[in-house]
Amino acid sequence: MKKWQYNFIITSQNSGQSVKELLIKWYVPQRIRGALRIKKHFSVNNTIVPTNYELRTGDQLQLNFDADDFRTSESNYLPNHQKSVNIIFENEDLVVVDKPAGMKMHPHSPTETDTLLNYLAGEFIQREVSDQPYMVHRIDRATSGLVIVAKNPLVVPILDRMLADKQITRTYVAWVSGVVQANHGTITAPIGIDASDDRKRAVDGKEAQAAVTHWWRMHTVFYSSLLRVQLSTGRMHQIRVHLASIGHPIVGDELYGGVHNDRMLLHSASIKITLPFDKGVRMITGPLPIDFPRQLR
């Protein structure tokens, strides 16, 4: 059975907290905390302690995990070595990858291999490390830019909670049709399944869920506007649907009424993330791809 181990030196930042309090602060799910407690899979200074043990500066906290502690312990993406991936940021827990437009995020069948996670699985094998890619969030095939991928199963639910609690901010840039008059706006229309086409999403569609998109106008050129966009929720096609709903579809997004272009002009430009386990806040940015125009004509 595969195992994972974490070792931490307690700093003054966390001194005085119990083991349980620290794990809750770190967003470790209750189910996994329970497995650690029942199996006695944590220790301080090489000694098994109760969960209410008060940590002190300099203590060595060790956490051990088994595969059955996680709902999905193995990612099982077939490795593909045919393309390299552009990793913008990496630490022991996650990578931030710059996905090109036109590449799928993940396979929809067990035999599919032409996706970002397949290429990342191949990358990890070439490094001869035990890391595997685990999907945290996704961007559409036609969208380019930064996306977070976990490297082990413990970090997946932690990052999921961080996304829900707004500890991760994703910023996009998008060229849209039309002259956007206001400098800033927020779209709060709920998004659900399009009643006439289940490939699409629609404002107030079937099974609609709350959706919040914030946008800022950067500039306008030749009846097209460049917007900076941030998400407070992560619904399927959210940016595309919301911008189309206010009369400014994304250039190249013909599914939602955008004018024809060689690619859809939506790019995930930056991610601000509070790194798991108190490893600090990082603002991660990548370069604009060469097929994303600075000035649209």
Rank of each mutant, 00 (worst) to 15 (best):
M264N: 04
G122I: 00
I284W: 10
H184G: 09
P50S: 11
L22W: 07
D194A: 10
G58L: 05
Q60S: 13
E207F: 10
V180I: 13
S268M: 08
S84Y: 13
D93Q: 15
G280W: 10
V221N: 09
E128C: 14
I148Y: 11
F70K: 02
G247Y: 01
G205K: 00
H237M: 03
I168N: 06
I271N: 06
F70D: 00
R240N: 03
S196Y: 10
Q62Y: 14
D291M: 00
S15P: 04
K3A: 06
K279S: 14
Q17A: 12
I88A: 13
T111Q: 05
G252R: 03
K40I: 05
K2L: 09
D69A: 05
P79F: 07
A269M: 15
V44T: 06
L255A: 00
I187S: 09
A208R: 08
K99V: 04
A269E: 13
F65D: 01
D291C: 00
A195V: 10
R228K: 12
K206R: 13
Y134A: 10
Q167F: 01
K206S: 09
K272H: 06
L22M: 11
M283T: 11
R31Y: 01
A150I: 12
P289W: 01
D291S: 06
S177K: 14
S224A: 12
A101P: 00
P276I: 06
W26I: 01
A164T: 10
Q13C: 08
L63A: 09
T51I: 13
R263Y: 04
A189V: 10
S109D: 11
T51A: 10
I271K: 05
G286Y: 06
A195I: 10
Q62G: 09
S177A: 10
N118Y: 02
V44C: 09
L146S: 13
A164H: 11
L22A: 09
V97M: 15
P29A: 12
P153R: 08
